[in-house]
Amino acid sequence: MTVTSALPTARAARVVAHRGASHEHPEHTLAAYRQAVADGADALECDVRLTADRRLVCVHDRRVERTSDGRGIVSELTYEELRALDFGAWKGAAHAGARVLLFEDLLQEALSAGRPVGLAVETKHPTRAGGRLEEELVRVLRRHGLADGRGGLVEVMSFSRGALTRMHRLAPGLPAVYLMERRLRPVRPPYATHAGPGIELVRRDPGLVGRLKAKGLSVRVWTVDEPEDVELCLDLGVDTLITNRPRAVREQVEAR
């Protein structure tokens, strides 16, 4: 694997790599995250689910068909069964052989980056794991001394108000991001300190960013890949851009 390097400089907005540098590499793979770090991403975004044997893995979909050569539901497969699948070949032969990534391995990768690299962790709901998903996430973070929000390295995200409430109960020091896809009327959910509208919402209603900020929420917008969307977000004062193309967005932010 060839990884090129880009060093971050002073910036007005944070750049978060959506499932890693997932435009170049298969999403949620070690290669994607290592490339994102090399590209100067401030933080790495991941989705987490529980396996049948309660291991925390980085997988977006409920099922594995889209991103692997296997079949089945993540929560019904053990970690070893997931490890046997190829999570890279769907992106092309050059990426074949990528394995499912444990959240704890991603955490270790971020901590060993040689500079501060954060994690933006989305707990996926609905899921049969229910609240056990947040419990396992906090358990792993606590083992690394990060469940209290120390250093601001970890933030949790969810479309589920219930999930954010559970996270606050389990780890009240962690910043919480309320993700928004279709809701146009900004509502501050319990315990959220950040709002995460999708770029389509922001395009349709640019004033949403200002209204969210007026409620005391910082704003993270996803998934911002196109140059015109980056410009729109920067013009509106968006705090964080979540993107599949961290290098290109990093360069555009720094050019401003």
Score class of each variant (00 low, 15 high):
1 M>F: 15
2 T>Y: 08
3 V>Q: 09
8 P>C: 10
9 T>M: 06
11 R>N: 14
11 R>M: 09
11 R>S: 13
12 A>C: 13
17 A>L: 04
17 A>F: 06
26 P>Q: 00
27 E>M: 03
36 A>D: 01
37 V>C: 00
38 A>K: 03
41 A>V: 08
41 A>L: 08
49 R>W: 01
57 V>P: 00
79 Y>P: 07
81 E>M: 11
83 R>S: 14
83 R>H: 08
86 D>I: 10
88 G>E: 08
90 W>N: 03
103 F>E: 06
105 D>N: 12
109 E>V: 15
109 E>L: 15
119 L>D: 06
127 T>D: 15
130 G>V: 15
133 L>W: 04
136 E>V: 15
139 R>Y: 08
144 H>P: 08
162 G>E: 12
163 A>H: 05
177 V>C: 04
179 L>V: 05
181 E>F: 02
181 E>H: 04
187 V>G: 08
191 Y>P: 10
196 G>T: 01
197 P>V: 10
205 D>H: 15
207 G>T: 11
208 L>Q: 02
212 L>I: 08
218 S>N: 07
226 E>C: 12
230 V>Q: 01
232 L>Y: 00
235 D>Q: 07
236 L>S: 04
239 D>E: 03
242 I>C: 04
243 T>L: 02
245 R>N: 14
246 P>D: 01
254 E>K: 11
255 A>L: 10
